[in-house]
Design a protein around this nucleic acid. Structure first.
Length: 795
RNA sequence: GCCGGAGUGGCGGAAUGGUAUACGCGCGCGACUCAAAAUCGCGUCUCGCAAGGGAUAAGGGUUCGAGUCCCUUCUCCGGCACCA
């Protein structure tokens, strides 16, 4: 028998599959469809390491299985090539991002090709292709027209190293997620997307999604809903009112002061009434200087300034209470103002204690330890005394004319980047007409070539230096105008790319309604959990918007989601060029073969677990592949009766496990089957069925042996074998016998034996009889096919 | 602090409430070989000569029977956090 030459076999089939178009997407309305998608990669300059393909292998196994099960399968691949990673790589290596991206894509593609994936490359998309980003810009215009894209001059997160503004999702605590630099606050004119309008729906619709519970939980935390009330406090000066958000309107009678965030707009409005304005202004200035870290670090020591000359009226008690400005109240949450109830809130308690403000208990008993933060029965709140908190919340809110409301932790999406390598924002600024949408007929607004694409750091994009591009005419009035020079964030293209795969060549719509109806939603989406509060938030937001304007027919983009666990390096650290611990799949494939790599990565452990790469352990996968190859030489014409039950059990289990993403147990079951084949023999039909269920994992080897055994056509377009439930059970089965829960013997019993006969046989077994004789049998039970248990009371 | 998830051999891990440690790696012994590699066979939680006993982070409970369900505690991982 020939030696197993993986290089020859794998190369041969990869070429043939490409030539024969084996994996071309077929839109057959007679078949159920299945859209299987990976989170597409950034084509970085470092190429793929063995960790990247893990998710792609899983979707490959899944999509191959679905194809063999008779589905129309869409399994595409593309490139998320705009954004900081690609641009930083280009800057570092002194080549234009366009050139770098082209080169990197070619490299990635070759690496993916070597692993033998079933991607349909005729549907490849690239977010930096003008034919693609035309539609990214189009979506922005629709958002703009609906008032969901607006300009803001609020301070935003600024990364001094990447020299660009960032969204909340781009942060890792208070540092830039890309480079780890602490972000600063910077006031820059920004385009912001009103994702908060969708917060409620995004939260509510999570419940029905077939996503891992922990991913949904991450999103729930990120969106962060609080239910409470907005209540207005009148002032002793002027007509303005302070609107506060509180989750505890039941404690309103205990509100002994009000706090405004330092950035609160009302402060400057009240300037003329505030007699200690200099102190207040100084405090505002001080707060503005603090970084996010400073501000959140002083969790204990509260600071603030009392507004002199202005007081508020508690709408419940009608008492005059002081107003403070303090930075423990955040401008960006709720209304930027709170009613402070020191008796029932830890922060308010600390502040009131420091500043000598009255503390009035209104829940529980007056002598309880303060602050008492739980719900309870109201006191000191006539006429609401004696009510429970829950009921009081509604009644007190109504009593003072407030309204019950919800507020979210989620912030609007800062959408401008002061960088070169992104989609130009299709807006023209006209001194007469303001911000004007570029007409859709003029899309795409092409990203111009530029001599220096280095970020300026001034808060202006590098595009601002190209005057011939910047200067244009206003689409509305025809007068002189300037183009918007900020670009979109990296997340823009990835927020809708999955739609483009359905209809990648369409030039008149981002996706045709027919194609969309056929393929949507994505049936299985696979990627890292780190995208839970980034890409997956943005994509859901855009999708819901596209649903609202009638572009898509589903309210959610991704019906099912599986998160892939990282492969970490053998040294236990993250695989990174920095640590020099990267393993390149090309090297593994050269020595061990693509099928070995695929089987190993699926066998390593549960798909969601982060597991260290271990080249030693990978030998097991290689041995498995070789044993299958060797076994093919001793396949008999006649089937082996002895392996029938285990063969059918394996067909059943592998099919179920693939659907459940339990690839490790699917492979172990196939190993058990292979062990049985080697021991008991295997017939041609049995071996063929085995090859078919192994085919999604080891497509090259199985394709080769499929032909060797005598089949024509590709195994990958063959029909998945069916299992015969009648063959799952053999005539006899091994049943353990327990005495008081301890196994004392095992019996081989006919499958259809009655309880009485089973117990009888057990009692006659000498090992069992010995134990039964030691006491009085008080109970006996036979769980069919599972176990026999005798309860014996000791004498 | 709040919210998730997880703790099983030397390692990755398996186990609809029903023989804990499948499958694989590693290790040991043997066969083949002049020898080695590869391959194949046997063994491999722990105490014990054995009969038996003990062990799924710790402790309790439910059950004929618990890794699995319930309660308490500990540890690790992830998220959120001056969010009113």
């Amino acid at each position: 028998m020939e030696h197993y030459d993986h290089t020859k076999i794998e190369g041969k089939w990869q070429k043939k599959w490409a030539v024969d178009d084996v994996y071309q997407t077929v839109e057959d309305s007679a078949k159920p469809k299945c859209y299987v998608l990976d989170m597409f990669p950034y084509p970085s300059g470092e190429g793929l390491h063995v960790g990247h393909p893990k998710g792609y292998i899983a979707t490959d196994v899944y999509s191959r299985h679905m194809r063999m099960q008779g589905h129309s399968v869409l399994h595409p691949m593309g490139w998320d090539a705009f954004g900081l990673p690609a641009e930083n790589y280009a800057l570092k290596n002194k080549i234009h991002p366009r050139v770098a991206v082209t080169k990197n894509i070619a490299r990635f593609k070759e690496q993916l090709f070597n692993i033998g994936f079933d991607h349909d490359w005729s549907r490849e998309v690239d977010t930096t292709d003008p034919a693609f980003y035309k539609w990214t810009q189009w979506i922005f215009l629709q958002l703009f027209k609906k008032g969901l894209a607006y300009q803001s001059k609020e301070p935003i997160n600024w990364c001094p190293s990447c020299k660009t503004g960032l969204s909340n999702e781009d942060l890792e605590d208070t540092a830039c997620e890309r480079c780890g630099t602490q972000v600063e606050k910077k006031i820059l004119p920004q385009w912001v997307l009103k994702i908060t309008d969708y917060a409620g729906r995004m939260l509510e619709d999570l419940d029905a999604l077939a996503w891992p519970e922990h991913i949904k939980e991450l999103q729930r935390n990120w969106i962060g809903r609080s239910e409470g009330a907005e209540i207005e406090f009148a002032l002793t000066a002027g007509d303005d009112k302070i609107k506060v958000f509180t989750t505890r309107p039941d404690t309103l009678f205990g509100a002994t002061y009000v706090v405004l965030a330092p950035e609160h707009a009302l402060l400057s409005t009240l300037r003329s009434s505030i007699t200690n304005w200099a102190d207040v202004a100084a405090y505002q200035h001080e707060a503005a200087q603090k970084t996010e870290i400073d501000r959140t670090n002083d969790t204990k020591e509260k600071t603030g300034v009392k507004l002199e000359g202005v007081s508020a009226i508690n709408p419940a008690t009608k008492q005059e209470i002081p107003v403070y400005v303090a930075d423990y109240v955040l401008a960006g949450y709720g209304t930027g103002a709170i009613m402070a109830v020191p008796a029932h809130d830890e922060r308010d308690f600390a502040f009131a204690t420091k500043f000598g403000i009255a503390i009035k208990p209104v829940i529980g008993s007056a002598d309880a330890t303060m602050p008492y933060i739980d719900s309870g029965t109201l006191i000191n709140s006539a006429p609401f005394d004696g009510l429970e908190s829950e009921e009081a919340k509604t009644k007190i809110t109504a009593f003072v004319g407030g309204k019950l409301t919800k507020t979210y932790r989620l912030k609007d999406w800062v959408f401008s980047r002061q960088r070169y390598w992104g989609e130009p924002i299709p807006i023209v600024h006209c001194s007469k007409c303001g911000a004007v949408a570029v007409p859709e007929s003029q899309l795409p607004v092409l990203l111009p070539d530029v001599e220096s694409y280095e970020p300026s750091g001034t808060g202006e994009s590098p595009l601002a230096t190209i005057s011939e591009w910047v200067n244009t005419t206003c689409p509305t009035c025809g007068g002189p105008a300037k183009r918007e020079t900020n670009t979109m964030p990296q997340w823009a293209g990835s927020s809708w790319y999955y739609l483009r795969f359905m209809d990648p060549k369409n030039d008149s719509a981002l996706v045709s309604p027919e194609r969309e109806k056929y393929w949507a939603p994505v049936d299985m989406y696979v990627g890292g959990a780190e995208h839970a509060t980034r890409h997956l938030i943005y994509a859901r937001f855009w999708h819901k918007f596209l649903f609202d304007i009638g572009v898509v027919s589903t309210t959610e983009p991704f019906a099912k989601l599986q998160s892939v666990g990282l492969i970490i390096a053998e040294d236990g650290r993250k695989m990174s060029k920095r640590f020099g611990n990267i393993i390149n799949p090309d090297d593994i494939i050269e020595v061990y073969g693509a099928d070995t790599l695929r089987v190993y990565e699926m066998f390593m452990g549960p798909f969601e677990n982060a597991i260290a790469w271990n080249t030693n352990a990978m030998i097991g996968a290689r041995r498995f592949i070789e044993r299958v190859f060797r076994l093919s030489a001793s396949v008999a014409q006649e089937d082996s009766a002895a392996v029938e039950p285990i063969l059918h059990a394996t067909i059943k289990k592998v099919g179920e496990d693939i659907l459940a993403f339990k690839f490790n147990t699917a492979i172990s079951q196939m190993m058990i089957l292979l062990n049985a084949f080697e021991k008991e023999g295997v017939g041609k039909n049995q071996f063929s069925a085995f090859l078919q269920i192994l085919a999604p994992f080891a497509p090259h080897l199985t394709e080769e042996l499929w032909a060797t055994v005598g089949h024509s056509g590709s195994i990958h377009t063959s029909t998945w074998p069916t299992f015969d439930p009648a063959k799952l059970v053999s005539d006899t089965q091994t049943v353990p016998v327990q005495i008081n829960g301890k196994v004392r013997a095992t019996l081989v019993l006919p499958t259809d034996i009655s309880e009485a006969d089973a117990l009888q046989q057990a009692r006659e077994n000498p090992l069992v009889a010995k134990w039964l004789a030691e006491g009085t049998e008080s109970r006996a039970l036979y769980i069919a096919g599972k176990i026999i248990n005798f309860v014996v009371d000791k004498i």
